[in-house]
Write a protein that binds this DNA or RNA. Sequence first.
RNA 1: UGGGGAUUGGUGUAACGGUAGCACGACUGACUCUGGAUCAGUUAGUCAAGGUUCGAAUCCUUGAUCCCCAGCCA
Length: 623
Amino acid sequence: MSAEAPRHFIQQIIEEHNAEQAWGVWNEHDAGPTDAPGPLGQAARQRLGKPRVHTRFPPEPNGYLHVGHCKSICLNYGLARLHGGKFNLRFDDTNPAKEEAEYVEAIMRDVRWLGAEFDPALGPFGGGLFFASDYFDTMYAYAEELVRKGKAYVCELSADEVSQRRGTPKQPATSPFRDRPAEESLRLLREMRDGRHSEGAMTLRAKIDLASPNFNLRDPVLYRIVHAHHHNTGDKWHIYPMYDWAHGFEDSIEHITHSLCTLEFENHRPLYNWFIDAVNDGRTADGSGPWGKKIWHSRQIEFAKLIPSYTLLSKRNLLRMVKENMVESWDDPRMPTVSGIRRRGYTPEAIWAFCEDIGVTKFDSVIDVTRLENACRDHLNKIAPRRMAVLNPLRVIIENYPEDRIEHFDVPNNPEDPSAGVRQVPFSREILIERDDFMEDPPKKFFRLSPGNEVRLRCAYWIRCERVIKDENGNITELRCTYDPDTRGGESPPPGPDGAIRKVKATLHWVDAARALPATVRLYDRLFTTEEPGKTTGNPFDDLNPEALRVLADARVEPSLAGITPDEPRWADGIRRFQFERHGYFCIDVPSWRADTRPFAQGALIFNRTVTLKDSWSKAGKS
RNA sequence: UGGGGAUUGGUGUAACGGUAGCACGACUGACUCUGGAUCAGUUAGUCAAGGUUCGAAUCCUUGAUCCCCAGCCA
């Protein structure tokens, strides 16, 4: 988030808080290692005495992260970084029935890949890695405290009964256990804790307001009985806290200043505050008195989640796509998961630019996915090395070029960045061009190769098509061309005797037929054909795009792709990305399950198309 | 039906009682050894109706539309 980033409403709230030092300032105890060398120490020293801004990203480890989460990560980490504060990664692992350790590793990797380093030993804004389950003891103590304060009770209604007694907007809910004596609730709560009751037998409920128009306040459940193995606490607990009960304390314990969440939690904010206030009721600032010291009270702020067009983001639907083989895996490059878009070739920088571009508001807007694609083109255009690749080859014989001759031409690695230098690309009598770059019977504005027409081969020569060779079925198998030696390197030839200047309107990419490397190229497109999948039929999978993946198994790429060349950027994630000239951006496929990201066997090259170049020719309808 | 939110060009987002701006897209043109990139220009907007005010996207009233909420999910 740059300094000139627009001041969205959360920014404004934070600035107001900072102005009045609502959260105090960082001190020598929590600023970090001020004596550490490098950026870590520097960040800690700069933090000292500044208003506290401490954010967190609190995923539940029950699935993979997707672009929607990126918005939240960028927001939270970006705010911490902008204000020189801290950022925590915290797993909200309060439901062992749905969560798995496997996801913890994947989520950490995804968050780090985005550049939101949470480890204070590795990143200047790292606040730490935390687990809600590490706070279970404290949360439980608070629960007993509420019971003793008469603010919570054990309710023996079944889930169905609670649901039936929920009431209506006008009719209040009921529970016969509401006025149970505190001692009895306390005894039952301890029995619940000790595993002496079966699942569903009873719950601990807060005594708030059975008639509230906000149903969240109709005596919400704090603890339910779950006899399940927890990935972190093992079999220690038989009761697990509900989200509403747990979340505010997680923020409180970590001294989070701004607890950012999505709009659907707006109705939960009164609860969030009620729980903290209930614990603080009777507590004092200095800890004197029977209940001890007041606890930290974070501020919950809600923002609209990301809804990209042509995309499905709900965990349920993503899971279904994997389970029902609509895609190959969680990291299938068609998936909107972080692992999917990473494998697709998107860069963290592009995702950051996108998230900053779309802003932060409380309005549920659908964001055009082309914005994400544009952000990616933008970034890759600046840094991706250019290469030539022929996806769908057509043989060209240059009849007047000597059979035994091979030339090497210098081709710029990146016209956007002259310092990237040039590489040498071999050329000989027999080359391959793109089938789409030739038309026997071209429409008016087709500038590429056609019978009698002349074009430039990128950085090589100008050629003219003399003859078209076909097989018995009339399919074009080969082109016979001639080249002009005066155009060596692709330069314009000298003017004719009459001063006339010859021009070509097109430059084609090409590869040397004998020396090009075979490759498989996977062309990815959006997974759905409609902006809001399922909007018309109700079933999003009716709108699946059958052409979201096209595999070209017979592509040919220039030989420099056989190894890593000096002009390639040092990609932090090890994923090697290129621009195939006139096609788009591609990366060498690296499935996230493969540990070695660098080596690959020659002849087994697989490229994933990240995003196409803009193409005004195809857009013109090829008319 | 009760409660909680929201509504500014095609899309996204600014303005905080004082000239409705920016970005993306689209369209024109220039340039180009990528029909890419770059550069220049054009396009188009305050949900509606009243009211307050010298002046309203902004404040008030009424209405419309959309989203969220009746899990022992988060």
